[in-house]
Amino acid sequence: MLLQLKNIFKWVNSGGQRIFLLKDINLSMAEGEFISIMGPSGSGKSTLLNVIGMLDTFDEGEYHFLNESVHALKEKHRSNLYKEYIGFVFQSYHLLDDLTVYENLEMPLLYKKLKGPVRKAMVGDMLDRFGIVGKKDLFPAQLSGGQQQLVGVARALIAKPKLILADEPTGNLNSQQGEEIMKLFKKLNEEDGVTIIQVTHSEKNAAYGSRIISLLDGRKIAD
């Protein structure tokens, strides 16, 4: 078991009322799974993803990740945990504009304090695997949306995380670019055994996953 959520609640207080963002969410996930989270706007998809990614906190419930009880951890340990095991892919790519493709890929490795030659090998490997060797010296602004997201995915993968979290990874892409990214996810999941959770609006994209979870008003209505 990679992670397990038990009775997760998250709320905000607004005008004296408690508004639930997540309500009694239960979820278990094994390594190698590919889950799609679906639901209309405001249903809590991104919130759930952020909670799983430990970027956001929750108010009640238990969260176990790789035998660690996340809900009992201090902020610092939590962030160490996600930095170690989780890679993020964003809808708007969030590449660092000032850095080249190569440097963007290298960034997570720098933070892991890996040695120069090791980093070079790993970045080279990743460029090769994603077929973007020719683009390594370009800046994000010089790439198309699809290419940028390709770099985004490569960057998420480079530190060999146990889990990839993707928040509407194709939201800013046209259909053809979107399809390529989804195919890439499927391939990574099936051939390399990468565990993925994605949030999506599209039935079609959701279908790439091996399991679909539907949310409505913070509740899980289907699994």
Binding site: F88, H94, M107
Partner: peptide, 12 residues
Amino acid sequence: KEVGIRKTLGSK
């Protein structure tokens, strides 16, 4: 935004 990205990429 840059700070956010860097933090998710593992920056302390």
